[in-house]
Design a protein around this nucleic acid. Structure first.
Length: 704
DNA sequence: TCCACTCTCACATTTGAATTGC
DNA sequence: AGCAATTCAAATGTGAGAGTGG
C-alpha cells in the first residue's frame, strides 16, 4: 500500500495487465505506458509532489522495446538450478527460516552506471495446487492454501548504482524461507508442499521519489521449486548434499555420512552396552574413580543398583548430559531493523512470471545459451489464478468452458531455454499485500561500500500522499475500470518486442516425469481462465490519510517508518489479489491503457470488501475476501501491532466494523480484542509472547 | 483406535567470520 | 601489523517422534 505510493513502479505484478509504465531508453525518462486512468495516483503524485513524468504519454512500442533491451539479467548458477529442476527442485522451509539452495546468483548488465537501483526478490505461487510426493513424483493433490501476503526481500545493497550492481555477482543467498506465518524475521513465508517461482525485480531507486519509474521483473523458470519440510525426493537430497558445502559432512566421505553415522551409532550402542556391563558390576561407583575391593564374588564391584543408573537412553539418543549442555535458544532481537515492512499492494502479483519467461523465450534466442531442452522434475504448472500465463501452462482453452479439464493434461513445456532475463517493464501497483524485507546480509561481499560511497548515508524519502491518493482514487478513469478478462484471455499474447504471439500453442517437447494431473482445483483454476464473466482487474490503491510518510532506506538497511498513519475508515482497502482472481495473460503490445481494468475506488463502505465489489467473482477456490476475513484486517481478529506499525494502512481497517469473515483466509489466527487505536499502541509495547497462544509466539513482530 | 502424512526438533558436522594470542 | 589458532554462529541433512486428520 504505502509502497505503492513510494514505489510507484513497483508493480511486481502482471506485466500483462499491470504494466502501467515501462522503461524508456533514456533511463531518466519515465513514460507511463498506460498514462491516464490507471495511474491517476501517479499523476496526482506527480502533480503534487513528484516531478511530473517526462516523455510522451503514449510511447510507441518501439520505445518500449528499446528500453527493455537495455537491462539484462542472467542467472549465474543456472546450470545448477537446471540440475535440480530436472529432478524437481525441493526447498526446505523451516520455522526459523532456511536459505534457498541453490541460491540466486545473478548478473546484471545494461544498467545505467550512474543511476541507483533497488533489487528485490519475491516468491510467488506458480499455481493453485498443493502437491504430494507419490510414486516417485509430485502430484497435485488439492487446492492451495490461502495465499499469504507476499514479502519482498530487498537486496541489502539497495539502492546501489548500476555500476555497483554490474560490478559483481548479485546474490540473494541470505533470503530465507519459512513456513511460520507469524515470522518476525522478515523471511519469506511460504506454504509447504506448494510450488513457487522466485522473481527478481529491478527498480530505479530514485523512482521512490517519483511516480512512473521503471521497473523490470526477471523470472527464471528453472528456479521453480516445491517447498517441503523434509526432502521427499532422494535425488534432490543427493544433489543438495553434493552441491552444498554445508552439507559436506553428509557426503560419502563425510563424517556425517550414513556410514559414519551408523558407525557412530554402533559405537554408542557398544558404549552403552559396556556401561551396562560396568553398571552390572558396579552401578553406582566408577571402578575407575573409586577402585575398591568389595566383598562379593566380583572384586571391585558392588551390588547392582539400577536406581543409580541414568535413564537408559533410547536407541540412538544422546546422553542426558549432552542435552543439558544445550544452550537455550537465543531470543529474537525484535529490535532489529532489517525488516522493513512496507505493505505493498501488488496487483497481479504473480501473474507475470509466465509471460515474462515466455517473452524471454520467444524473443530472445540469444538468451537460450544453446542449452538443450531438458525435462523438468515438476509437474506442469497448473493453471493458476495467480499466474494464468505462467510458462508451461497450457494456453487457456476457451473451448473448455465447463470448468473441467482432462484429468491428465499433457505436460506443458517448461522451456529452460529462457535461462536469462525476461525483462518486463511493470509498474502496476499490485494489490497483493506485500512486505518488504531487508534481510541481514551475512557479510555480503557484495555489500560493499560502493553503494554507500555514492549515496547518502541514509535515504529518506517522503511524499505527500494524502490528498494525492484521495484524488487519485476518487477520479478513476472510467475507461479503465473494467475489462473483460475473457477478452484478454482470448487475445493472443503478443510479444511486445516482436509483436508476435507468444502464446504459441506449440510447445517444445518436454517430458514431465511422474506428473499426474489430479488436482481438481487446478483443473478448476484452468477452467476459471475461461470463465465468461469478466473479473475486474483491479488497479486500486489503498489510501491513507497520512500527511507524511517517510521512507528511510538503507544503506545498509533501515526501517521504513510510517508515522502518522491515522486511520481513515472511509477508504476501503482493495486487495484483489487476495481474491486470487485469475488474471489475463499479457496483453498484446497494442493493448491500450483504456482497456485496463481499474476498479473504482470505493469510498467509505461498511463492507470493507477487499475485492472490487463490482467485480464478478469467478468460480475459484478463493472467494472474495473481506477485511473481516483476514484477521489482520478484522477488528475481531488478533491485533497485530506490527502490522500496524509496518502497514499503517491497515489501521483504518482495524478500526472498522468487521464484515463477515472468510474463514478460508488465515483462519489460524485466534481472536483478539478489538482495542481502540491508542490502546493498541500501548498494547503493542507490552504484549507478551504466549499470551495469545501461537499468534504471539514470535514476540510480536508480525510483518504482514 | 489406527494409520498415513506432515511437521518439528535435536543432532553431528562443516563452513567461515570474528576473536584472540603471539 | 600480520599471521595462525581458536571460538562461535550459522548452515546442512538426518531421523525420531509428535501432531493432525481421516
Amino acid at each position: 500500500m504505502l509502497s505503492v505510493d513510494i514505489y510507484p513502479g513497483l508493480g511486481l505484478g502482471s506485466p500483462k495487465i499491470g504494466d502501467c509504465f515501462y522503461r524508456e531508453r533514456d533511463p531518466t525518462v519515465h513514460v507511463p505506458l498506460f498514462p491516464s486512468g490507471c495511474d491517476t495516483v501517479a499523476k496526482t503524485l506527480s502533480q503534487r509532489r513528484l516531478p511530473p513524468p517526462s516523455g510522451p504519454a503514449d510511447a510507441p512500442p518501439e520505445q518500449l522495446r528499446k528500453g527493455q533491451e537495455e537491462v539484462k539479467m542472467e542467472l549465474e548458477n543456472s546450470s545448477l538450478w537446471k540440475q535440480f529442476s530436472s529432478v524437481g527442485t525441493e526447498m526446505i522451509i523451516t520455522k526459523k527460516g532456511r536459505r534457498l539452495f541453490p541460491g540466486l546468483k545473478l548478473k546484471l548488465s545494461g544498467l545505467n552506471p550512474a543511476l541507483r537501483y533497488i533489487l528485490l526478490l519475491d516468491i510467488v505461487p506458480v499455481d493453485n495446487s498443493r502437491y504430494r510426493f507419490q510414486g516417485g513424483g509430485w502430484q497435485a493433490v488439492g487446492g492451495a492454501e490461502a495465499r499469504l501476503p507476499d514479502r519482498v526481500c530487498i537486496h541489502p545493497d539497495s539502492p546501489a548504482t548500476g555500476a555497483h550492481w554490474q560490478s559483481r555477482a548479485i546474490s540473494f543467498h541470505y533470503a530465507k524461507l519459512t513456513n511460520n506465518t507469524l515470522d518476525s524475521q522478515g523471511h519469506i513465508i511460504l506454504h509447504s508442499l506448494h510450488r513457487y517461482q522466485p522473481r527478481i525485480h529491478l527498480v530505479e531507486a530514485r523512482d521512490i521519489m517519483r511516480w512512473g519509474g521503471g521497473q523490470q521483473t526477471f523470472v527464471f523458470p528453472e528456479t521453480q521449486f516445491i517447498t517441503v519440510t523434509a526432502y521427499q525426493n532422494n535425488k534432490i537430497t543427493e544433489l543438495k548434499i553434493n552441491a552444498n558445502p554445508f552439507a559436506k559432512g553428509f557426503r560419502e566421505d563425510g563424517m556425517n555420512s550414513k556410514k559414519q553415522r551408523d558407525a557412530r551409532q554402533k559405537r554408542k550402542i557398544d558404549q552403552i552396552t559396556d556401561t551396562l556391563d560396568i553398571v552390572n558390576c558396579d552401578p553406582c561407583d566408577s571402578t575407575e574413580v573409586l577402585p575398591q575391593a568389595t566383598s562379593g564374588s566380583s572384586p571391585g564391584l558392588q551390588t547392582l543398583d539400577l536406581s543409580c543408573l541414568p535413564a537408559l537412553p533410547a536407541y540412538g539418543t544422546e546422553e542426558p548430559s549432552y542435552q543439558d549442555s544445550l544452550l537455550p535458544e537465543q531470543s529474537l532481537d525484535l529490535g532489529q531493523a532489517f525488516i522493513a515492512d512496507v505493505s505493498i499492494p501488488l496487483s497481479g502479483g504473480i501473474q507475470d512470471a509466465g509471460t515474462e519467461v515466455s517473452n524471454g523465450l520467444m524473443e530472445n534466442p540469444q538468451s537460450q545459451l544453446g542449452a538443450p531442452a531438458y525435462p523438468s522434475g515438476f509437474p506442469p504448472a497448473q493453471p493458476s489464478q495467480f499466474s494464468p500465463s505462467y510458462p508451461g501452462l497450457p494456453a487457456p482453452d476457451s473451448s473448455d468452458a465447463s470448468g473441467h479439464a482432462p484429468p491428465s493434461l499433457p505436460p506443458p513445456p517448461l522451456d529452460y531455454h529462457t535461462t536469462t532475463l525476461s525483462p518486463t517493464s511493470t509498474s502496476t501497483p499490485a494489490l497483493q499485500q506485500t512486505t518488504f524485507t531487508f534481510p541481514t546480509p551475512p557479510h555480503s561481499n557484495s555489500s560493499s561500500p560502493l553503494p554507500v560511497a555514492d549515496t547518502p548515508p541514509a535515504y529518506s524519502y517522503a511524499c505527500d500522499l494524502e490528498n494525492a491518493a484521495i484524488t487519485s482514487y476518487s477520479a478513476p478513469n472510467p475507461a479503465c475500470d473494467h475489462m473483460s478478462a475473457n477478452s484478454l484471455l482470448n487475445q493472443p499474447t503478443i510479444d511486445p518486442m516482436t509483436n508476435s504471439s507468444i502464446n504459441d500453442p506449440t510447445p517444445p517437447e518436454y517430458a514431465y516425469p511422474h506428473f499426474l494431473s489430479t488436482n481438481p482445483n487446478s483443473i478448476q483454476a484452468l477452467s476459471n481462465q475461461n470463465q465468461l464473466h469478466s473479473p475486474s482487474l483491479s488497479c486500486s490503491f489503498p489510501v491513507y490519510n497520512n500527511p507524511l510518510q517517510s521512507f528511510a532506506f538503507p544503506p545498509p538497511m533501515q526501517n521504513l517508518a510510517f508515522p502518522n498513519m491515522t486511520a481513515n475508515p472511509s477508504h476501503a482497502l482493495h486487495l484483489p489479489n487476495l481474491n486470487h482472481q485469475p488474471q489475463p495473460p499479457f496483453p498484446p503490445s497494442s493493448f491500450t491503457h483504456s482497456a485496463l481494468s481499474h476498479p473504482q475506488f470505493q469510498a467509505p463502505s461498511n463492507s470493507q470488501t477487499l475485492s472490487n465489489a463490482s467485480a464478478p467473482h469467478n468460480a475459484t477456490s478463493y472467494p472474495p475476501v473481506e477485511l473481516g476475513a483476514i484477521p489482520q484486517f478484522s477488528s475481531g481478529a488478533p491485533y497485530r501491532p506490527d502490522i500496524v506499525r509496518h502497514h499503517p494502512a491497515l489501521l483504518s481497517q482495524l478500526d472498522l466494523p468487521t464484515a463477515a469473515s472468510n474463514p478460508a483466509m488465515y483462519s489460524t489466527f485466534s481472536p483478539y480484542p478489538h482495542l481502540p487505536l491508542p490502546l493498541r499502541h500501548l498494547y503493542r509495547q507490552h504484549q507478551h509472547a504466549n499470551t495469545q497462544g501461537p499468534y504471539l509466539d514470535m514476540g510480536a513482530r508480525a510483518v504482514y
